[in-house]
């Protein structure tokens, strides 16, 4: 919750009518969330936060990864997953897991309008990276709620 308190503190010193300033604060806070996520687990190699309609909001991707393509691809995949889950009678998507031969990727909702995509090395257990990612989605959702209010 430290991050959320930080942002409330910052916004109170920011003229909320200045949308660009709000966007700057948002970008800084999203960067902090991603930095914390990547340092939380050595298994996590990269991550991107994007909007549900496929715009990149913050990223810690590797140099050769195009943030705009990954943002768009993530939103498309998660939207289809939501359909499969709901039409299959399985409720909402908790996460989507891609098991690649060289590592795993998972996608999670982060509040109603954002999502988080996390890339891992070829790690044995997915438990801890997934737990840290879920924690990050809760922080993103809380941050967006504060900014929307």
């Amino acid at each position: 919750m430290r991050i959320i308190n930080d942002v409330i503190e910052q916004i109170s010193h920011t003229n909320l009518e200045q949308d660009t300033q709000t966007q700057e604060v948002l970008a800084q806070e999203l960067d902090k969330i991603l930095d914390a996520l990547l340092t939380s687990s050595e298994d996590i190699s990269a991550a991107i936060i994007s909007s549900v309609d496929g715009h990149s909001k913050a990223q810690r991707l590797e140099a050769d990864m195009d943030e705009h393509r990954f943002a768009a691809m993530s939103s498309a995949l998660l939207a289809l997953s939501d359909n499969i889950a709901s039409e299959g009678g399985k409720g909402n998507t908790e996460n989507v897991l891609i098991e690649g031969t060289n590592g795993k990727i998972f996608l999670l909702h982060a509040g109603p309008k954002h999502l988080l995509t996390v890339f891992t090395h070829n790690c044995g257990s997915l438990g801890m990276p997934l737990a840290y990612a879920k924690q990050a989605t809760e922080q993103i959702a809380a941050l967006m709620e504060v900014l929307a209010s």
Binding site: S51, V52, D53, G54, H55, A72, A79, D82, K113
Partner: peptide
């Protein structure tokens, strides 16, 4: 696969197809 528009498209319509 309609989701909420978060950009300038929101001026045209509320939701957009992403997949």
């Amino acid at each position: 696969t309609d989701v909420a528009c978060t950009d300038e498209s929101a001026q045209i319509k509320e939701k957009t197809t992403v997949a």
